[in-house]
């Protein structure tokens, strides 16, 4: 019985048309598309997008489409689909790492007086250090989904030529840990972003509290070999809370960018509160719920 069925008995016997891993890959593809849009908005802040800043903007939609294509052809040709997905997702990890490195370069002042080369305020005002890591997160998530675990929930990943690779955790627990780390990254990103405003709104403290809670719960669950029903229900409730938090955050960011009588000024949406960023919490919540689905792999 899946964790979702354990936590919610009324879903037992209901079957999703897509397996857990298929849904994960679909989510990874959609995430890539959104990351492209989000990066475009973020890189537009300075008014001029430099040539290398186009890389993630172009990569996001291209990667998203490639993953969708891989998902479609996987129904008949699993091996080439795996190849396309794996290369795309590996490239996503690379784009994320290079992006974070470039953002990090903007945060440090190597020639500043000793002791001032790196400071918290520099991290706050620099391009978001953790932003590009979203590409890494999606890449790792996608690769986790693409790898086949055989037998289900064993923690043994199937490799070509009949070989297997034992992992320290089962795929399900790996997903939980990934969700926890993803929420933690989203939380740190929001903390640095909100620090620019001096935490002048109570809503920001709510985001901090819920974010900490929602980062801790999946990590704890991922470390448990045998979670109880109440643990799974707390986790599920937390994921739903994340979805609500992200949606609320996005609405609040949109509201902060509206002026006067609700007039939309594009500039404010680009340079003001990023309305897509809070949806990362919702994204992690959705991912967390999908992770609870049955681990059995029925396709390919």
């Amino acid at each position: 019985m899946s964790h979702l069925e354990t936590a919610l008995p009324w879903v037992r016997g209901r079957h999703s048309p897509l397996s857990r891993d298929q849904l994960m890959l679909l989510l990874a593809a959609v995430n890539q598309l959104f990351l492209g849009v989000d990066t475009y908005l973020a890189h537009s802040i300075s008014g001029t997008i430099r040539p290398w800043e186009w890389t993630p903007i172009v990569f996001g939609p291209v990667a998203g489409l490639l993953l969708l294509v891989a998902g479609l052809i996987a129904l008949r040709w699993r091996t080439p689909a795996m190849g396309i997905a794996f290369v795309t997702l590996l490239a996503s990890v690379a784009v994320g790492l290079v992006g974070s490195w470039l953002h990090w370069q903007r945060a440090v002042l190597p020639a500043a007086p000793a002791g001032q080369t790196l400071a918290v305020y520099l991290l706050v005002w620099a391009p978001p250090l953790l932003g590009p890591l979203a590409f890494c997160g999606v890449g790792v998530l996608g690769m986790s989904a693409a790898w086949i675990e055989r037998p289900a929930d064993s923690g043994r990943l199937a490799l070509p030529w009949g070989r297997s690779l034992p992992m320290p955790f089962s795929k399900t627990r790996g997903y939980y840990l990934l969700v926890g780390l993803g929420v933690l990254a989203a939380l740190l990103s929001s903390v640095l972003d909100h620090a620019r405003t001096g935490y002048d709104s109570g809503w920001m403290w709510l985001a901090l509290a819920v974010g900490v809670f929602a980062a801790a719960v999946p990590i704890v669950l991922g470390l448990m070999p045998h979670p109880r029903v109440d643990d799974l229900r707390v986790y599920l409730g937390t994921m739903v809370l994340l979805i609500v938090l992200g949606t609320l955050g996005s609405a609040l960011h949109v509201e902060a960018n509206l002026v006067g009588e609700g007039v939309v000024i594009v500039e404010r949406f680009i340079r003001g509160a990023p309305f897509l960023a809070p949806l990362l919490f919702s994204n992690m919540g959705l991912l967390g719920i999908i992770a609870m689905m049955a681990p059995t792999e029925e396709w390919g």
């Binding site: 901090l208 801790a216 109440d230």
Partner: peptide
Amino acid sequence: MRTFVVGIVAVAVVLGLAL
């Protein structure tokens, strides 16, 4: 409930440290 308690403790610790 273990996950809930750990989650609440984490919130308390982080908010306490922030304060």
